[in-house]
């Protein structure tokens, strides 16, 4: 793994189609990426939106469901099993099924129209303004159950006596959640945040499966754009430059995390 990674750095400095002779062009690939490639810049915006959504929606869903599951006293295992099933379904099937359900004519739109809700029948994957969010929806559907299980594991380690004590002191449910649950879950939350950021920057499966980055690059991510450059346009050097840039962004995130830890903030 180390060798191809370093090879990627070297390749990113070349103009190469993968077969013929490679020309050394220095940092030209990177200059083109940041100044002359609107798709690349758009992809950066898309992964930032992706990160923002994935840091909030699935975390809220997972944490909410996990807290509810700890409250009830029956069917706990039933719910945690069912909620985790989508996580084990392959991304192709999730993406393929949702893409079909979001089809402009066939899918849910035909059901909506049949029930007089035609105004809600949007071009889920064909409208450039909402395509990215439709793709995110499918991915959130398949992802949040995993967070729910992680939070359940974390919640199980919290001492129940703390809640008893707080209840005796007259604390409300919300206060207990804010003052006991969230602080004690902080290691899990930080881990989830870091994981989410890393995976959002490299997300590939869902945009590739559902929209091929379209319409008109409206849902391209860094990974899909790299992939199309490598496979469809045979520009190995340019694709490597995208991959190296992605890694650069991730290193910034990790460095920020390490820096805050070194500063003594126990995050």
């Amino acid at each position: 793994m180390g060798v191809p990674s370093i090879a990627s750095f070297v390749l990113s400095l070349f103009n190469w189609n993968g077969i013929g002779a490679a020309h050394f062009i220095g940092l030209q690939n990177f200059r083109d990426l940041f100044s002359q490639d609107p798709v690349f810049v758009g992809a950066i915006v898309h992964v930032l939106k992706w990160t923002a959504v994935f840091l909030t929606v699935p975390v809220a869903l997972g944490l909410g469901a996990a807290v509810l599951i700890t409250r009830i006293n029956r069917f706990q295992i039933f719910y945690r099993t069912i909620l985790y099933v989508p996580v084990t379904v392959a991304s192709v099937v999730v993406g393929g099924t949702w893409a079909w359900l979001m089809d402009p004519i066939a899918g849910v739109n035909s059901v909506l129209q049949a029930h007089g809700l035609g105004f809600m029948a949007l071009g889920w994957l064909t409208n450039p303004n909402i395509a990215l969010y439709s793709v995110m929806f499918a991915n959130v559907w398949a992802w949040w159950g995993f967070l729910c299980i992680l939070f359940l594991t974390g919640l199980g380690q919290i001492d129940q006596g703390l809640y008893e004590a707080a209840r005796v002191d007259g604390a409300s449910q919300w206060t207990m959640f804010r003052r006991i649950t969230v602080p004690l879950l902080r290691p899990t939350l930080v881990f989830v945040g870091l994981l989410t950021t890393l995976w959002s920057f490299t997300t590939f499966d869902y945009p590739y499966i559902m929209t091929q980055g379209g319409p008109a690059h409206a849902s391209d991510t860094l990974a899909t754009w790299m992939y199309f450059n490598l496979i469809n346009y045979s520009s190995a050097g340019y694709a490597s430059a995208i991959a190296v840039s992605t890694t650069g962004f991730l290193l910034v995130v990790i460095a920020g995390y390490v820096y805050t830890r070194l500063r003594g903030w126990d995050v």
């Binding site: 191809p4 390749l11 490598l230 190995a236 694709a239 991959a243 991730l250």
Partner: peptide
């Protein structure tokens, strides 16, 4: 290795 994105080694690996 756990944190590096798979895309980083896709191009050299593919070739």
């Amino acid at each position: 290795g756990l944190t590096l994105p798979a895309q980083l080694f896709l191009t050299p690996l593919f070739i």
